[in-house]
Every structure is written in C-alpha cells, then in structure tokens.
Amino acid sequence: MLIKTINLSLTYKDANSEVIAVDNVSLELPEKGFFGILGPSGSGKTSLLYLLSGIRQPSHGEIYFSEKVYPKSSEGRSLLRRLQMGFVFQQHFLINYLNVKQNIRIGASKEGKDADMRVQNIIQRLGLEGFELRKPYELSGGQRQRVAIGRALANEAKVIFVDEPTAALDHHTGRKVVDYLYELAKDTCVVTVTHDDSILNNADKIFTMWDGALTEGNTL
C-alpha cells in the first residue's frame, strides 16, 4: 500500500467547543488508481486530504507512506510532500510573476537538465506548448488549472492530491481536466476530494464522508 491510515482523527477547538473534523478514519490507498473522497460541504473531506498529505498533523491515529510512519516534524512532512506528493488545489495558486514553465518548475524537487526535460514533457502532455512564457494572468481558467496539475507532476509524485478540481472551471474545461486526471491515474495514485459525484463515475474507489467519518469505501 502506498498510504495507509489507522484510526485517523483531527479535532480542533472552535470558540468553546471541540470540533471533530476527521473522525477515526482508516483507509488504504494503492500505488495506482483514481480515488474519490466524496461528501457535502463541511463533511471533513478536505481536512482528511490535509492529513493524508501531511499538511495537518492528526490529533490521533497513524498514517503510513510506503509502510513508513509519517514524520512528526513539520520539516520532515514538508520534505515528504516535496519529494513524493503533488497537490492540485481548488484554486490554481500560480505565482503571478512567474511564467508557465517556471510555475511548473517550482514543483520539481530536483534541479538540472533532467528536470528541464521533464517540465518540457509535462508542457507537451498538458497541451501548453506555445504558452511556456505566458504569465498566469494571460491564461484561461482551464489553462491555469492545467499548469497547476503540471506543477503537481513536476516532481514525479507517487501520489497526487486534488481538491475540488472542477469547482473553479466551466463544465467543458472541468471535464477535460478530470479526463486528464484519469489519464494520470493509470500510473499514479490520484486522490480527489469533491462534492460532485459526476466526476467520480470511473473512479477505482469512492470514500464517502459524513461528519468527519467514512461512511462508505472504508477498506478496513
């Protein structure tokens, strides 16, 4: 298994009460495939994504990546993300003063000619040829999202976390982005969080969340 969680919980204090964002979640994700985490707004699916990617530290439970427990230090988890994980956020979060090529390149964990070639390949695969030197504000919404996906691919990630990939896009562009994610899932583990079940029609597995807990798809 690429990622395995055991009784994962995330709680935080909100005013006077304690909110349980993720409640005792155990799941397993293999090295390839398209996996959806589905749930309504506030169900805890994005929080689970942050736990899986190491951006958040769980309150309870364990997470393993390639059989190894996640590092406790934030520096260690950052390094894990940088070397093994890719991230596509709901908003593209491209750096405005960098061009397409540079925005993709910041996702690469290594420097050198290999990284350059890889970035060039990604640009080709994503159909961004001719746009390499454009700044994000000179691109359409779909193109920006493709650049964000390219950034997630630049480090040859073993797992790509995707948060609401179609939320900021029109239907047609959203569909193309989802198709591309399915394409990626043939070689990589793609974990997509969404409240739109239509994009999960061809998913290998769907985890449904409600009030922080998995209601379907729990593999343990």
Partner: peptide, 15 residues
C-alpha cells in the same frame, strides 16, 4: 502570502 502559502503547502520548508 499566496505564494508563500502555496510553497509551504507543496513542501518547501519555512526555513
């Protein structure tokens, strides 16, 4: 802030 938040999220250390 967006730039730094993004870099932290994708694994660049605060250091």
């Amino acid at each position: 802030a967006n730039e730094f938040g993004l870099l932290t999220a994708i694994g660049y250390s605060k250091k």
